[in-house]
């Protein structure tokens, strides 16, 4: 069954640059991640005010998924994402406010899977979702999990990948696995696409 699936589209965000299917679609000279995200939001005319309330991990996942889900009609698209830092960046922010006035708006992002909820709300997905933490990009687990979801008909498509944020350093690689597409859904392809935007 594994060879029946393909990578329909993919995106990267690294070093203040966004790629869609290997083509650079936005770059900014912003010194910090927040300014980079704000510039990208304006560039793509996203018109989604809640974006600015999100933590950095959610902004990263939201922005990387946007070119993939914008014109995606299939609403039974599961979300499976992974990273190394979990929600550590936001956890630290929350910790620094613990002795004063903890912010409820920061606290609600102290779990990495919240970013999946943000994507689901924006794109009206009521699908399966899961978030895993690994030391590094783990194509094997993503590959098997996506195939299992499709084989068991829990989803028609799966948006998978890696979204990691810590200390301004950001790395996102997302892709949609479906029954048709340009690239074979294999470990070799995933490793190659992850390495090179």
């Amino acid at each position: 069954m594994a060879n029946d699936y393909f990578i329909q589209a993919y995106s990267h965000i690294r070093n203040n640059q966004i790629w869609h299917n290997g083509e650079s679609i936005f770059t900014a000279d912003s010194a910090d991640f927040s300014s980079f995200m704000k510039a990208a939001y304006k560039h793509f005319a996203l018109d989604y005010g809640k974006f600015f309330k999100m933590d950095s991990l959610s902004k990263l996942a939201f922005m990387a998924s946007n070119p993939l889900l914008n014109d995606e009609p299939e609403k039974n698209t599961a979300l499976v994402m992974t990273n190394k830092a979990g929600s550590l960046d936001t956890d630290r922010k929350h910790q620094t406010t613990m002795n004063d006035y903890p912010s409820p708006a920061v606290f609600v992002y102290t779990l990495p899977n919240i970013c999946l909820g943000e994507i689901s709300i924006k794109h009206q997905l009521y699908s399966e979702n899961a978030f895993f933490v690994f030391d590094s990009f783990n194509p094997s687990t993503l590959h098997d999990y996506a195939n299992a979801l499709l084989d068991s008909k829990k989803a028609e498509k799966v948006l998978c990948g890696w979204v990691d944020f810590e200390h301004q350093k950001h790395d996102a690689f997302l892709y949609i696995v479906s029954k048709s597409g340009t690239f074979e859904h294999s470990l070799e392809t995933l490793n190659r696409l992850y390495q090179t935007p």
């Binding site: 005010g49 309330k53 004063d100 006035y101 903890p102 912010s103 409820p104 708006a105 609600v108």
Partner: peptide
Amino acid sequence: LGLDSIDALELIVMLDK
């Protein structure tokens, strides 16, 4: 303004702080 329940909590914190 379309504020939500988390915003309401932030406003309660703001009143106190």
